[in-house]
Structure formats: C-alpha cells, structure tokens
Design a protein around this nucleic acid. Structure first.
Lengths: 118, 118
DNA sequence: TCGATATATTCCCATATAGGTATATAATGT
DNA sequence: ACATTATATACCTATATGGGAATATATCGA
C-alpha cells in the first residue's frame, strides 16, 4: 500500500505546511482564494488544490460570492488532533510533571499504609 | 514534487495511525519491539520501520538491552503539533467562546467610552 | 458581445511511501 | 558450533502526492 491519502483525515491534511498556513490565515476570518494566493505566495491552482483537501476533511467551508469563493475555517475538524496530542502534554510540561510526582507520592502512601483512608 | 517525507517532521510522522498507536503504547513506558508487534498486531518488519520514522523525527529514543532494543517515548517532539493546534481550541471550546464574548464587550465599552489611555 | 477577473480542473512527472516477503545481523542458550 | 530469538534492512509494487503549466468555467464590467 501507499501512504494514506491526504484527504483521509485531518492528521494527513495538515501534515502539509502550506495547508497549515492556509488555516492560519483563515483563522483571521473568511477570505477569497486570491487573498490566500497573495498571503502564501503560492500559485493559484496549488492554493485551490490545497483548499480542496482542506474542504474534504471538513477543515474549511466555502461560500459563493459572485465570481469569488469565500473560504472559512472550521476548527472543529482539528479537534481529533488536539485531543490526541493533548495526552502527551504531560511529557514536557513541568506543571504536569509536578502533578505526577504528587500522584506518585499519594499512591506510595496508600500502598505502604495498608488501609486507604489513613 | 512529491509529498514531504514522513521523516520531515512530527506532523508527517504521526499522520500514519499505526505510528500514533505505537506512541500510545510507549506512553505506558519503555517497550521492546516485540511487545509493540503484539500490541499492534502488525508484522515485525513494519513495526521496525515505523519505529525508524519515529526515531528520525525524535519522537522515540532507543536503548540496547542484549538482543533487544527498548524504545521509549520522547513526547517533546510532539510539542510543535500541540502548540499549533492549541491555537484552534477556541473555535470549538465553549469556554473560549464565552471568553471571546467578554473580551468583545470590554472592547466595545472601551471604545464607547471616549477615552482610552493607550 | 467581448475582454478581464476569479477559481477550479486536468495533465504531466518524480518521488516516497506502506505493506509483504526474504534476508541480514546480532545476541542468547545448550 | 548450532539452533533460536530479536531486530533491522533490502527489495518489490501500487499508489497518491505537490508543483508546474495549460485550460475550463463562471462572473463581471463596458
């Protein structure tokens, strides 16, 4: 098998840095394609293609406005990424490390104690 | 150009669900390859290959133990993902929405006020 | 109607996959 | 020494990619 399609899920879609850039720009509000072209310094067809991928995974919505298409962020689609990676926060956050220390101490106390309610 | 290599960065590395599973298992502590093989139900060579990718982006570390290799999580490598996606939390979290409402109100007040000592 | 503007789609191509299978390498036990 | 165990690497193949370029489609203004 080959690599999973970029349109498989949000993880694959945002692995491409340009697509993250697009979302970052859209975080500032609805934008037509050409604004994104200017903002990213990419050719228009590539932007349209990136937008298609983002649309297929639900990370953006489109609205027609004359000959323009206004794209809008739909952050909800990024939630699975957030939820997954959040579990790893403890591995680098000092706050969580401290909490782990406290929890370990509590656990030790509980065990050495024989009974739970001290 | 083709798609960026999976070893380019953490974003690309964890786009593959099996590699996320591996990290999830390693979150429980150091493990030899065979444990991961059993846990994932994947063939051993594929696991080794996934581990190589994870190693190249710094998401895991290895330690030799006789004929075994013990792999350990290095969550720090996932931090860029966390930091990027965290900015989008507000788009789905009600808590942040509420905060936005309050901030908007404050801003309005400040403007309608006539004087803002900026 | 015609030219300009905005966007999407199509075609081309080099490239890196992910899984399968076989094999290499190394350590261990007997 | 030898069989076994643990892991990594090499090879194969189908496939989707991202950029470039050209073109299609649709809307607007004159």
């Amino acid at each position: 098998m080959a690599r999973a399609a970029t349109t498989t899920d949000a993880f694959n879609a945002v692995a491409e840095p340009r697509r993250r850039e697009i979302l970052d720009v859209l975080a500032g509000g609805e934008r037509p394609v050409n604004d994104l072209v200017d903002a990213l310094g990419l050719a228009q067809p590539q932007v349209s293609k990136h937008l298609r991928v983002l649309r297929e995974v639900g990370a953006v919505d489109v609205r027609e406005d004359g000959r323009r298409r206004l794209y809008r962020l739909n952050g909800e689609a990024l939630r699975p990424i957030h939820d997954w990676v959040k579990g790893y926060e403890r591995t680098w956050s000092e706050r969580f490390e401290q909490l782990d220390v406290v929890l370990d101490e509590l656990k030790e106390k509980e065990q050495g104690d024989g009974r739970n309610d001290e």
